[in-house]
Computed example of a mutant assay.
Amino acid sequence: MTSLTTLPLAAATGPRARFRDLVAAEWIKLWSLRSTAWVFVLGALTVLAFNGGTAYDTYRYWSQRNGSDRADFIGDGIPILHAFTSNGALVHMLVLGAVGALPVVGEYATGLIRTTFAAVPDRRSVMAAKVTVIAAVTTAFGAAVSAGSFVLTQAILSGRDAGVGITHPGALRAVVASALLAPVCALAGMALGTLVRHGATTMAAAFGVLILLPAVLTDDRHWTAVLSHALPLNAWDRLAQPGGPPDLFPWTATGAWTVYAAWALAAAAITVTAVQRRDQ
């Protein structure tokens, strides 16, 4: 009787899903929606439009600058600021926050998450697979947009001999910082989606955390400066600035990289662990 009852149970249970199979499944889920590709394409074009438009504006009115302004333009690293504008960064963050949240809130909205957890009871592995796919895809996306923006803007500025190369001081750091801003924001959006599990509320929370909170905090007081420096947008701003901003409470580039790493790791940990003790 023991052998007769245990065999069916073993057959029903089946082999444990391999992590690479879970990653493959999440990859298919991500790209099975047409909206995914459109979000990436439209987001990239919008960022490039903001940055390229700023560079073209400088190109168009270059003749109105005097000799001193033209010399200081490159010396102060302004071409790098044109390659990664604040408006472009804000759009970049909003798009990536939404991209990171959708794989979670989308499944909760449709009820597919119940099927997923029923098929794979190991919820942490499922969420870790989501984190892996989103981190990889958004890192590649961020690298493409960042590099493309730099090449586009410097090509426009080169028409006035005002462009710089990647070896210019601060240029490579700005390119890398802008590229890695994508996975940081995507993972933050995914963590918020895991906690909130509602699309509109998650988008509002992502906007508040990633965009609104940095605007509220200032560098005029030490405690607000510390909080401000701990946010991804301000960390990006510190890294994208050619020589570092002359803040009242200055901080290092190493500190800004640490903020990037801390946000990514904390967001991944929240995503993986938050579903373990919650209902579906």
Rank of each mutant, 00 (worst) to 15 (best):
L42Q: 12
S158I: 04
L9E: 11
V23D: 04
V209D: 02
V47E: 05
T201A: 15
M203V: 14
D76F: 11
T36R: 10
D237Y: 07
I28L: 15
L180M: 15
L227S: 05
A37Y: 15
R277T: 04
D279G: 11
A262P: 02
A200V: 15
R278D: 00
R124L: 07
L187I: 11
D72N: 15
G100T: 09
T153W: 02
D76N: 15
I28M: 13
A44M: 10
L227T: 04
A140I: 11
P121K: 12
A171W: 09
L22C: 09
G43W: 00
A44E: 05
V226P: 02
A177G: 03
T85F: 01
A128W: 01
T132G: 03
V226S: 09
G77Q: 03
D161H: 08
A186F: 01
P79C: 07
A262R: 00
T224N: 11
Q241F: 01
N51W: 02
A136M: 15
V272Q: 07
G52P: 00
G77T: 07
R70F: 03
L42S: 12
I28Y: 11
L217M: 13
A225E: 06
H168R: 14
S158K: 13
D76T: 13
A24N: 11
D21Q: 12
L81G: 05
A174Y: 00
M203F: 10
G142L: 05
I156E: 01
L81F: 06
N51S: 10
F84Q: 01
A49T: 12
T224M: 14
T54Q: 12
D72P: 01
R277Q: 10
R34G: 08
K130C: 03
V105R: 01
L210E: 00
R123V: 09
F73L: 13
A11C: 09
S228T: 05
A37H: 13
W38T: 10
L227Q: 02
V91K: 08
L172Y: 09
A268T: 06
L42T: 14
V216G: 08
I270R: 08
T202F: 01
P79I: 06
I211T: 04
S149V: 03
A230F: 03
F50Q: 06
N66Q: 10
L212K: 13
L33S: 14
P8A: 09
T167H: 11
L231H: 08
T110A: 04
T271Q: 05
T85P: 01
A140N: 03
M1S: 14
S35D: 09
R278G: 02
T271E: 00
R278Q: 13
V23G: 05
W263R: 11
L112S: 14
L30A: 07
A129T: 07
L4F: 07
V120D: 03
L181Y: 00
V209Y: 02
V47M: 14
T202G: 03
G52T: 01
R18H: 12
D220E: 15
S68K: 12
V99N: 03
P242V: 03
F50I: 14
T115K: 03
S86A: 14
V120R: 05
R221E: 10
I156W: 00
T110N: 08
K29M: 07
T138V: 05
R18Y: 02
A144N: 11
Y260E: 08
T5Q: 13
G14V: 10
R221F: 06
S63Y: 09
Q241W: 04
G77W: 00
A253G: 06
A143M: 11
